[in-house]
Design a protein around this nucleic acid. Structure first.
Length: 588
RNA sequence: GCCCCCAUCGUCCAGCGGCCUAGGACGCCUGCCUUUCACGCAGGUAACACGGGUUCGAAUCCCGUUGGGGGUGCCA
């Protein structure tokens, strides 16, 4: 990780502290990765004080600590408070979740030796729903943290007033909890770090890395007048005043900012192509760039794993860090490819189904969702794609996830494959669990008012369920397979009826109706009796069962016929057959 | 426009200079099983964008072209 052309003297003038604090030793440097020189490697960090004999001591040294489950502290930080990576209070935590053997040997593993200082974060903005892309970003960060025995943190980017509403924030927690992604420290609320952000701006201003600007944004110029931003503004030396924003002074000295992206290799951007950007709005609020860089530093983030759409802000992020004296050789960045739709466009709220929880509501299991999301841009090295417990720390994806193996090209969201995986997960469920999970879909089904009114319904439901389990791909399909048990008369599907009611159907129905009263009422026996009858009449087995099926269920497809008959009961079967027969007679 | 990123079956993932006649998965097609539909099982279909290099040898490395995407806010 190299940032060229850092303004000379920045370290001494701006943040003396940071220079002192970063005692971290970079071990291993940038060794090549499985001989693949194009891809970068994760630098390992360790200090003598924290490395236990196991080699997997957890480096948890924050300059501060949490008291139980107390809410995040709203700390007023000056840059001097920015991360104390190796302060005196280094904490040796519990053993990492991932066994040493799974991490890979030194030099052999794709990541080489990685100690447990990894701290990653998921930093969503509360928009009222959890976007699929965000969910995957959270997932990959979580996997990375768990794989390396590090911490997965949360930061709510709620600097917009209306975005800090608790209900919007809860949606994020709900989504993560549903997926099974746990976080290790109380979430940081960006809105509560305003003092720190202001302090950061002040320091940048004082160090000559930022300046006041009276330019008016385009949208407002029509209304309030004023002039557009001019690159020459950086030299006007404007004093602070109401209504003025602060811009960061990008070093236009012919230099570049570059970093070795964990997923895509080296990325370089010339400073000439980066315009001086606003870090503090005219209303005093910090912009995303400033808050983001400041908060990551505050939280001691070691690896920034985020979407590809943020590649372009990275130079600004790095420049800001450098100017704040946070130039840190251990920071690693990884930009994941976007999830795109069939048209290869970034998943959009308007066109696509991007809300994670909508998938839950349509009958997808969290485990299937996680399983599938892991397969977008990554895949287990052993090729075993379907994992019923994908997040299992002992044998799931966390034992094998490698951020440098993440693909660099966008992945299309394929609902067909998601459905297939969901089906696999559904079939792996015990009948009891399946019943439990299907219930919410039963009580909202069209026949819900009748279903459950009779205690026998539940029994019927559970008995036919094993047959339903192999037939559905999502839980919301369940009611459609069992509805005929719980309505007075099944709605007859016309196509099915026409197809089943061949010329011989009337005679067949008559024969069945005649035999039903005498048959033993057990699915297996019914099967034999029924097929015996078909043979007697010289009828084709397939064709013979079709009219009965349509008469009883309304459709030509559904659960096995004889189990259904048994559960429906002799009287009801007789009644439905008779009704169908009469409709046939009437020319139906 | 400018900047950045990407490029193997329709889709996702393998491929890390010879093991590639390019592998697996989803989808699709065929067959088997079978009371329908599923499940399961057995087959099949289908890809290295193009052009130059480098090399004894390139899907793999380099350059270019083309195509696609993302970013270009006092949004995050």
């Amino acid at each position: 990780m190299a940032i060229s052309n850092v303004p000379p003297g920045s370290c001494s003038t701006v943040v003396v502290v940071a220079c002192v604090v970063f005692v971290v030793v970079v071990a291993g440097g940038t060794s090549s990765l499985r001989g693949h020189s194009a891809k970068p490697t994760v630098s390992a960090t360790r200090t003598a004080a924290t490395e236990k004999s196991t080699g997997f001591a957890r480096l948890g040294g924050r300059g501060w600590s949490f008291g139980g489950s107390s809410p995040p502290r709203s700390i007023s930080v000056t840059l001097a408070d920015l991360p104390g990576r190796c302060g005196a209070s280094a904490i040796v935590g519990p053993e990492p979740a991932v066994p040493a053997s799974a991490v890979g040997g030194c030099g052999e593993g794709s990541l080489g030796r990685v100690t447990d200082s990894v701290r990653v974060r998921f930093a969503p903005s509360p928009t009222g729903f959890l976007h699929l892309g965000s969910a995957r970003a959270a997932l990959f960060n979580w996997l990375f943290a768990r794989r390396h025995g590090g911490q997965f943190l949360l930061r709510i980017e709620d600097t917009d007033r209306d975005r800090s509403r608790p209900e919007l924030i809860d949606v994020i927690f709900e989504g993560l909890e549903w997926l099974g992604l746990d976080w290790d420290e109380p979430p940081v609320h960006q809105s509560q770090r305003d003092d720190a952000h202001q302090a950061a701006v002040d320091v940048l201003l004082a160090g000559g890395h930022a300046y006041w600007s009276d330019a008016v944004p385009e949208g407002e110029r029509d209304r309030v007048g004023g002039r557009a931003y001019d690159p020459a503004d950086r030299d006007r030396g404007l004093p602070p005043a109401r209504g003025r924003a602060v811009r960061f002074k990008v070093p236009h000295d012919g230099g570049v900012t570059s970093w070795n992206d964990l997923i895509r290799g080296e990325i370089t951007v010339e400073h000439e192509h980066i315009e001086d950007f606003v870090i503090r709005r005219a209303d005093g609020s910090p912009t995303f760039f400033l808050a983001n860089a400041s908060d990551d530093a505050h939280m001691g983030i070691t690896h920034v794993i985020r979407g590809e759409d943020l590649i372009n802000i990275t130079p600004k992020y790095l420049l800001l860090r450098a100017a704040m004296g946070l130039e840190d050789a251990t920071l690693q960045l990884a930009h994941m490819p976007l999830i795109v739709n069939e048209q290869r466009k970034k998943l959009s709220k308007r066109r696509d189904d991007v809300s994670l929880m909508d998938y839950r509501d349509r009958g997808y299991l969290a485990s299937a969702m996680v399983n599938y999301l892991c397969l977008l841009g990554w895949g287990p090295p052993d090729g075993e794609e379907v994992r019923i417990d994908p997040l299992n720390l002992n044998d799931g994806f966390p034992t094998m996830f490698d951020i440098t193996d993440v693909s660099s090209s966008p992945a299309a969201f394929d609902t067909k494959k998601l459905a297939h995986i969901n089906g696999e997960h559904l079939r792996a469920l015990s009948v009891e669990a399946f019943a439990e999970l299907a219930m919410p879909f039963m009580v909202t089904a069209p026949f819900a008012d009748r279903f459950g009114s009779d205690p026998a319904d539940r029994t019927t439901f559970e008995r036919i369920l094993p047959e339903v389990q192999t037939r559905v791909t999502t839980l919301d399909e369940v009611p459609g397979y069992v509805d005929f048990f719980f309505v007075d008369s099944p709605e007859i599907d016309e196509t099915s009826w026409n197809k089943a009611m061949v010329p011989d159907a009337a005679g067949w129905l008559d024969a069945v109706i005649a035999e039903v009263p005498g048959w033993d009422w057990d699915a297996t026996v019914l099967h034999e009796s029924f097929m015996g009858l078909a043979e007697e009449l010289g009828a084709n087995r397939r064709k013979f069962q079709a009219p009965v099926r349509v008469a009883l269920t309304g459709r030509s497809v559904g659960p096995p016929l004889f189990e259904s008959m048994e559960l429906l009961g002799r009287d009801e079967v007789l009644r439905r057959l008779t009704v169908a027969r009469s409709q046939l007679a009437g020319g139906g």
